[in-house]
Amino acid sequence: MSENSASAEADVDSKDDVNSKDTATVHVVLRKAGRTKIRYPATLLRDDGRHVVVRAPWAAAGIRDFGFVRFEPGDVFTEHYWRDRWYAVKEVRDGEGGLKGWYCDVTRPAEVDGAGLVVEDLDLDLWVSADRTSILRLDEDEFAESGLAERDPRAATAALGALDELELLARSGELVNRLAH
């Protein structure tokens, strides 16, 4: 469920990475189980060396209705990645600018390389509705089935801790404050 904002296999030009001074475009590369799940261009809003913020439209064909939220053409994702945290947080707005909520992916800390901004999805997710009344832990079954706990117990522990941290931040109302830092 971590597909977020754009078309699946956009062409990548090696100069278009986070370190490029000539462009405000970065390619976000989401990997899962060692393969590229999705790659899409995004506008780089800021990179302070620890926290990277990009914005990208939902560009997948059609609508994805998850039951608790619909991602559709016109939606805009402001995506927050950290090089020292095991998660990414995506603020989701509709085409009119109305807030839908926050989609949080548990990932390994973000890396920047020649491919762009690279994150590895670890299956666990959290959804927080715009009014903050719905906070949903997602894909715990996929995480259990992934075998990460056996292959990389340290990463599995960090992933579960990140999901717990995200839920605590969401329930305390601090998730949005965290995005500013």
Rank of each mutant, 00 (worst) to 15 (best):
G116C: 11
G97C: 06
N19K: 07
G67K: 01
V76F: 00
A60V: 09
D131V: 09
E96I: 05
L122F: 04
K37E: 12
E150C: 01
A130H: 01
R85D: 03
R83L: 13
D121S: 08
D152A: 14
G98D: 14
Y87N: 01
N177S: 15
Y103L: 04
A149V: 09
D48E: 02
L117S: 06
E145F: 10
D113K: 07
V92L: 00
A110N: 01
A115N: 06
L166R: 08
S146M: 01
P57F: 01
G67I: 03
E167D: 14
S129V: 09
A10C: 00
S172W: 10
L45E: 13
L168G: 13
S20M: 09
L138R: 02
T107H: 00
G49A: 08
T23S: 15
R108E: 14
L122I: 06
A180H: 13
L179N: 10
A88N: 08
L30V: 08
P73F: 11
F77S: 14
K90V: 12
S134T: 15
K15Y: 12
R132Y: 06
T107P: 00
A61W: 11
T157D: 14
L138H: 02
V29I: 11
F143L: 06
V119C: 05
L126H: 08
R50C: 03
R64P: 01
R178I: 07
Y40R: 14
A61P: 07
T23G: 06
P73Q: 07
D84T: 12
R50Q: 14
E79S: 15
S20Q: 09
K32I: 06
V89L: 11
V18G: 03
N19G: 15
F71W: 13
L124S: 12
H51A: 06
A130L: 03
I135Y: 08
R50E: 12
D105F: 01
T157C: 04
R35W: 10
A88R: 03
S2H: 01
I38H: 07
L160N: 06
D105L: 05
W102L: 14
L168W: 11
A115Q: 10
L148R: 02
A115C: 07
R178L: 14
D11R: 08
G101A: 04
A130I: 04
S134D: 15
H51F: 00
P109Q: 00
A8G: 07
L30S: 04
L126E: 08
P57M: 03
G34M: 12
I38M: 11
R35D: 11
V118Y: 04
V28S: 04
A158Q: 15
R83P: 02
Y81Q: 13
E174M: 14
T107C: 01
L124Q: 10
A159L: 00
E167Q: 13
D13P: 02
E91K: 15
V106G: 05
P41A: 15
H51I: 04
A110Y: 04
D75E: 03
V89A: 13
S134L: 14
L175E: 00
G101N: 01
L160Y: 02
F143D: 02
P153E: 02
V128D: 03
E72Q: 15
